[in-house]
Design a binder for these strands. Sequence first.
RNA 1: GAAUCGGUAGCUCAGCUGGUAGAGCAGCGGCCUUUUAAGCCGCGGGUCGUGGGUUCGAGCCCCACCCGAUUCACCA
Length: 508
Amino acid sequence: MTNSEPSLSEQQQIRLEKLNQLRELNINPYPYNYDVTHYSTGILENPSLVTEEPDNHTLRVALAGRVMTRRIMGKASFFTLQDSKGIIQIYIRRDDVGTETYNSVFKKLVDIGDFVGIKGFVFKTRTGEITVHAEEFEFLGKTVRPLPTPKEVENDKGEIVTYSAFSDKEHRYRQRYVDLVVNPEVKETFIKRTKMVQAMRDFMNRRGYLEVETPVLQPVYGGAAARPFVTHHNALDMQLFLRIANELYLKRLIVGGFDGVYEFSKDFRNEGLSRFHNPEFTQVELYVAYKDYHWMMDFMEEMIEHVALDLHGSTKVSVGDHEIDFKRPWPRIPMYEAIMNETGHDLSGKSENEIRDIAKKLHIEIEEGMGKGKLIDEIFGEYVEPKLIQPTFITDYPVEMSPLAKKHRSKEGLVERFEAICNGKEIANAFSELNDPVDQRRRFEDQVRLRSEGDEEAMTLDEDFLRAIEYGMPPTAGIGIGIDRLAMIMTNSESIRDVLFFPLMRPE
RNA sequence: GAAUCGGUAGCUCAGCUGGUAGAGCAGCGGCCUUUUAAGCCGCGGGUCGUGGGUUCGAGCCCCACCCGAUUCACCA
């Protein structure tokens, strides 16, 4: 940091002055700890705590949090205290906590946002609100910057209306800490995301699969079609890439003898940003030996159905205008059949040029160097994918677009691959893993050729990975599930930024 | 990268065909011992995103730039 400080607003200056005054009163504005016995929600949900006539035997509660609203009425006040679980009202009187604490500290030096600790008993106000009657008041942390002050109120219809909401998306993304404090639903979204990951982790652990960690910094990147971030290691004077996928390392572990391995991982792709794309994103990849992609479809259905039940108590989830039902089984439609259904064109057995003509007829924008796989992908993305709202498996992709998938056991020119599509977007990609080292080398070489022809997303040849599967890899099913996109669906969020605490933003 | 919309007080926003900036909340001073968007009286607070230009005069008009949102493109 430089020593040039931005000029302070009047409110910040006033708060800094209050900070000094606290110290002059011998009150540490930043004390070290506070013994909390109860949370706001715990008190609100437990009516047996409410007393009318407190005595020595009445249970006392101690809670801590931020002051969010204040209603001062002379010698007594109400304020709301927000802790990690929720908000509860506190009643505080001069005659209970002492004149100095009440007049000099509470009324003069406490601001909205400050941390305080309260000890007292629980009662009900005249209007029936469960409230903590403070008998002791302690200062726990001074804020020197004013918090946005949204107010929630119930209108005649019983709806919650929020006034002065902290709603500017830029501010919310940049200052997520503030967003979390004042917009309670944000916390809910992220808690749900974490629960979702936990449900998946539990599900895989119960089947005995091993959670592992593989390198983020890789000398050769691979496992997906994408441009990488490039970095440099000083001591080894070596170019390194941030991983774009975990696939090739996890398969090395299958070679090494694990039956099932999975990893929740941040991957990095050097691409544009959008509602569905952040340069760093999370996926879980799972590889299971002696299984194929049919088995993997069963597995995915079961796991995601379980996640939906775990999060919502139902297989049905509201997303935008749709209700998405994750109940098993999900439709399984071969890709050519799905394209046929939507466009009337049958691509099976067609040559690259024939497919290019069909793409032209379908008004697909065709660019130099688009191969067969890419053309098919474009047609699919334009005509089929957006229509698949309910979870659907699209199966059997052209070999040209799947260099790591095993060729189909009966359909010429295709591989045993599926993508799970939901709400018009891919949420998973899986295949029967290619374990024929000779075929794998040929596929890599095709990729190298594409790269030399200018396809920046084509894969590079990973000689060590080839060596690994030359030692032998069992039949294996593998899958990658996009955690951010699944979280968007499970939390009914319309932007990936709403399920990332700190989405990438330009510098301020 | 393109289009559209937006950036005014700590927060949410208003500001007409250009006339020198406004509300609510928040803040400050005062009153108020069961309030709840507490209330009542009084007061302060602004580089109107940045830089140019037009004009007697710009928050408003023009140009360039910065930042964001959304859509499209790119992209799984």
